[in-house]
């Protein structure tokens, strides 16, 4: 599986404005809805599902990275995107450090294996320091897409 299989290019954000966890999730989900990949009338329900998952344990996994995600019946394919925050924000991460890279994923409930494989893919790339560094350096949305494409082409593999 590749990032391109679920990342919505039109919804990447190189300069996330939100300064709180919930607002960050809202801003990113809104981007997906504006891109036509999520139903607008499901917006609140999707945000709530993601925040409910965060209550079980923060997906802020350290090193400035967070991977909020959920399964939601309103989508029929996996929908994800990437947002980068210049200032960083508090995501209640395990290392208590601010988060500046957020991968968000919404998957249909009936294909849990794909959901896991998408998380695997995200997790694998986020372990690569260079991948994260390039994302942080993005000056426009297109820069992020370029980094994702390079990751899909295994340009960062050590």
């Amino acid at each position: 599986m590749k990032l391109a299989d679920f990342v919505v290019r039109e919804a990447v954000i190189h300069d996330l404005q939100a300064v709180t966890k919930e607002d960050a999730v809202r801003e990113i989900v809104k981007g997906l809805a504006d891109a036509g990949e999520l139903k607008s009338d499901e917006f609140e329900s999707i945000v709530a599902a993601i925040m409910k998952r965060e209550e079980l344990g923060s997906t802020g996994i350290g090193n400035g990275v967070a991977v909020p995600h959920t399964k939601h019946p309103s989508v029929d394919k996996m929908v994800g995107t990437v947002a980068v925050s210049k200032k960083g924000l508090d995501f209640a991460s395990i290392d208590r450090e601010p988060v500046d890279i957020i991968f968000l994923l919404v998957s249909p409930p009936d294909r849990p294996g794909d959901h896991l494989r998408a998380l695997e893919n995200i997790s694998r790339h986020l372990r690569v320091e260079m991948f994260c560094r390039f994302l942080r350096q993005a000056k426009k949305d297109e820069d992020i897409i370029e980094v994702l494409d390079e990751a899909d082409a295994n340009k960062f593999e050590s």
């Binding site: 997906t59 996994i61 991977v67 896991l116 494989r117 998380l119 695997e120 893919n121 995200i122 997790s123 694998r124 986020l126 372990r127």
Partner: peptide, 11 residues
């Protein structure tokens, strides 16, 4: 197992 191992960053 590879998938379960790789998501270790998150889970």
């Amino acid at each position: 197992m590879r998938t379960l191992g790789n998501i270790r960053g998150i889970y």
